[in-house]
């Protein structure tokens, strides 16, 4: 009689910049290809639909030990996740993530940023991190750290105009991401300073 397959272990979430992945350790069965299936359960399912689970079809009978769950974790509530293993007709019990996952805990990294001086104009290029992201860009005249100006950039489309610069002083810029859906921000990027009239971008 076929032995029951062991349930997947070490189930965990990797979540960075609102991209969420479920990972687990492989179930090893000599000479066999083990396949895995993933299901999720939101707070709504727990409280209103008899704790029902919803399969993620992109992660149904997959050989990989990672599943991109970003599309399904699309509300700021506590989610349950589980994985099971299959070899042909043999099937394991569900392995369930210890504790819930709420996207509010995603780790937010500072944005990649490039500061450009074009004549008297201060410009910034920001990395496109997806629709969930806005950017808070701070800029100031070097030495006048108390008079910082702020610009919120909601849409990243190549080179964004920040302001005009006087000739002479350095202008410094730093940026952080802001995710409205979870009301959290990343730490700031490194500061970069430039000078009007073709000044070079200097890392500080």
């Amino acid at each position: 009689e076929d032995a029951l397959l062991p349930a997947p272990q070490n189930i965990s979430i990797l979540s960075t910049n609102m991209k969420h992945f479920l990972t687990w350790s492989p179930v090893i069965v000599q000479g066999e290809t083990v396949r895995y299936s993933v299901e999720f359960q939101g707070e709504y399912e727990r409280e209103y639909v008899n704790e029902s689970w919803i399969p993620i079809c992109e992660c149904s009978l997959i050989a990989a030990t990672v599943c991109n769950i970003t599309e399904d974790i699309s509300a700021t509530v506590a989610y349950n996740l589980r994985v099971r293993a299959d070899i042909g007709a043999r099937r394991s019990e569900w392995g369930t993530l210890k504790g819930f996952f709420n996207r509010i805990t995603t780790s937010l990294t500072p944005p990649l940023m490039k500061v450009i001086a074009d004549g008297y104009h201060l410009l910034v290029e920001l990395e496109d991190m997806g629709p969930a992201f806005q950017f808070c860009v701070l800029y100031w005249k070097k030495g006048q750290e108390s008079r910082v100006q702020q610009k919120v950039v909601k849409e990243v489309s190549s080179v964004i105009h920040l302001d005009t610069m006087e000739a002479g002083p350095d202008y410094c810029v730093k940026a952080q991401t802001y995710v409205e859906a979870i009301n959290r921000s990343s730490s700031f990027s490194q500061t970069q300073c430039v000078r009007a009239q073709g000044g070079r971008s200097m890392w500080l």
Binding site: G119, L123, I160, H161
Partner: peptide
């Protein structure tokens, strides 16, 4: 806003309907 000489393009995002770009060549 595209500078035809340098071929550089800048983007502005505004809520009101007027924009003045100063300090140009």
């Amino acid at each position: 806003v595209l500078n035809k000489k340098t071929k550089k393009r800048w983007f502005f995002s505004i809520s009101n309907n007027t924009l003045v770009v100063p300090w140009l060549e």
